[in-house]
Design a protein around this nucleic acid. Sequence first.
DNA 1: CGAGGTCATCATGACCCGG
DNA 2: CCGGGTCATGATGACCTCG
Lengths: 470, 470
Amino acid sequence: MNQTCKVCGEPAAGFHFGAFTCEGCKSFFGRSYNNLSSISECKNNGKCIIDKKNRTTCKACRLRKCYTVGMSKGGSRYGRRSNWFKIHCLLQEKHQQSVEAAGKMNGGDGNSPTAVSPLGGGGFGDMAAAAAAHLQQQQQRHPHMSLLGYPSYLPEPFARHPADAAAAAALPFFSMMNSLPSMAAAPQSAFQLPPHLLFPGYHSSAAAAAADAAYRQEMYKHRQSVDSAASAESQRFTPPARAPSSARQTPIEVCLGGDEEVQSVHSSHSHSQSPAQLTPSHTIHNPIAIRATPPQQQHQQQQSVHNSPLHSVSPQPQPQPQPNSTPLSFAAKMQSLSPVSVCSISAETAASTPTPAAAAAAAAALAQDCPMDLSMKTSRSSVHSFNDSDASSLDDQEARSDGRRKFYQLEAESNSTCSSSVSSSEHEAVKRQKLNAIGEASASPFGPARSGFAVAHNAASAMRGIFVCV
Amino acid sequence: MNQTCKVCGEPAAGFHFGAFTCEGCKSFFGRSYNNLSSISECKNNGKCIIDKKNRTTCKACRLRKCYTVGMSKGGSRYGRRSNWFKIHCLLQEKHQQSVEAAGKMNGGDGNSPTAVSPLGGGGFGDMAAAAAAHLQQQQQRHPHMSLLGYPSYLPEPFARHPADAAAAAALPFFSMMNSLPSMAAAPQSAFQLPPHLLFPGYHSSAAAAAADAAYRQEMYKHRQSVDSAASAESQRFTPPARAPSSARQTPIEVCLGGDEEVQSVHSSHSHSQSPAQLTPSHTIHNPIAIRATPPQQQHQQQQSVHNSPLHSVSPQPQPQPQPNSTPLSFAAKMQSLSPVSVCSISAETAASTPTPAAAAAAAAALAQDCPMDLSMKTSRSSVHSFNDSDASSLDDQEARSDGRRKFYQLEAESNSTCSSSVSSSEHEAVKRQKLNAIGEASASPFGPARSGFAVAHNAASAMRGIFVCV
DNA sequence: CGAGGTCATCATGACCCGG
DNA sequence: CCGGGTCATGATGACCTCG
Ligand SMILES: [Zn+2]
Ligand SMILES: [Zn+2]
């Protein structure tokens, strides 16, 4: 390969999380992404230069550089080929079709609703194809904005506090970003995916700026949540915890609910009857919900999904408390950006909420609780302080012993037969703690912007197995 | 106590190594002092600000700050009171005497040979008293220059390479230092000990600059030794290793030789007959060779030492290959500065070399192999790669398996009865490795300046139990 | 091939003990 | 009281397995 780590310059071990990185930076990103609390602020205004020698000296700048070079959970691959490869192949095909379609009949605003990629039965590209088909159906203006972890190109005022302004000024091409708002706000092609997802090693300045903004935003949110653990603003979306009757409204349960009515390709039902009854963490680690079916079948499935009354997501309520054309909405949108966006949920499901209002709530809750992948364990063989009081069915239950834990809700299986999980092994306890950490991080004040992307949420949640969480 | 750590600002745990520090900074200094190889260069030109948050992010700057606030191995205490307290009490007394003596008869250049402190039998202050008495006898111009780890105030050209110049410019009061060369080069009082040793918490700018220079010098030496592991310049002082016949010239053996003819107060002879025969590391950990005898007796001992033909150190050969008045000699002197200087040798001895030439060689060798205290273990319960081939008597033997190991010489006991140390426990192996590391660090190109302080070396080596190594 | 888990290794600092 | 040893804890990254 002969590539070097885009983060530290060491010889790269491969293409990890969307960029060529070494083993160390790969592990670091995998560890740090969900664990912002372990990263302390840079003491050098974020201007640290990361190389092989001092990559461990400033975790903030290292993570920032990870984002800058295009790393994200969304840039990861599922299956034998990388996401990048799949999307690249699909999108090239798609772009070609779109171009020739535009040249032939010149329809629409460029997002001509062409057929889904005939690239077909190869077995890859399905995920992006599904997303493309659905998003084209929805006629979204910025379909890629929250797809695959890539935030929008919208420039941000960058005036949260002086340090932010300084960091923005330090960005090499940020001024160029500001001078091209139209390109950023209104991409010409509906499937103009970010180049760093299309071509590894290539990262546009806009991508770098957006990644940097995403990183800073994430850190900002984290700081907010750390500083004010239980602020009043976080009450806007009160977690409906500990109420089994309101299970329909818990965020993850919405993700996983109605699983039985969706055919499962990599379903975990086969071994879900194990005596331990599979705690949620285990469930998350099941095969990822990427459909490996050909596009035609995928199309049919989507149609069926849309025909089902449970999946009536087309007329979304779109609750947007903020106007979306003022500069403030820009900031609000920026605030809703999350550096990592694809929420890998096992047991592929669709957003199967009974009512549109519930669907919107589910989308909002999704936004609140995602990203929620339970990646690498950060601690091993340590008993921790988790109380093994009775641990009756992690689902819809609030951890109540540790002061730092807020809540967590998670439906272990689609059908709620798993009401008595044993949670015996500490392995699961560790993962439960991770869940708590995620819930804690997601409890940050995150109000106005979350619903601003409800439409994207719904679009994503209508896709089976792919959940885009901003 | 209500003091704060002078390094990081955390509430201090006590007075450690010459400054009020927290537990962390104390441990860090104890670990890092002998272990420069574990400290990588600062990526921020040494301008990192050390506080509680980011004290672990830049070890170079942390260690530099440790030196800046006056920490040194020589600042440590032996006994119930701290070194600082002892010297403080003695020197205050001494200074008072000197002042009133100067006011009365106005003799000499301020170093009036007054009687040694009558503070006497209290049991503390003896070490400094001995040093004071001897140094007054020798009429050294800069007696404190290499005493107790405090380097001279000589300014340095600071033009090793551009980074050095920048670092020097960053020093707050360095320009002031350059404007006062006379004060720095010729202290008015013979016992004008550095204020940071007299008053904890007080650090003059000169002290800070000198500490910084010492730190940079140490790092420079280390870098040199790392870059060119076996450079030609290091051959100038070939270690007389592996030759038992030349044991008289091995550096440490010179320190410890002739021990039987010096009365031992805290001698380790009582338990030196243990079956393991006490590897050198163990010997170093014996009670430190600070005389606890009253000054009068100390005075007599010194006299006897000087009367002995073995200790004819008064007419030192003073091999100085460089002239000592040119600017180059400044740099050379600066190069000879070591941040930590008091070499605590167990089994208190005097420099008992047969010939003056050998005494000079011993001083040079001392300078080469000190500091050599074997402080805290850095690795535990790891077998390492040390070859346990036969390990016959660590003394005067060269470690020959590891490529990075250079040599080490150490006389375990004064009388060479310990020719068959077992070195069975890996505990000792670890310490042996530390010895190797020290030898490695001291094998750096260090030529012209070492002998430049031969007079100080001899003065120090003539003092029993206190060895000043620059 | 890449994601994620494992675990040897190391740095850190709170704690303890001996002098 | 301080130097130094101990060791629980956390971070790191090379290596491995699985899909
Ligand atoms: Zn890297
Ligand atoms: Zn400190």
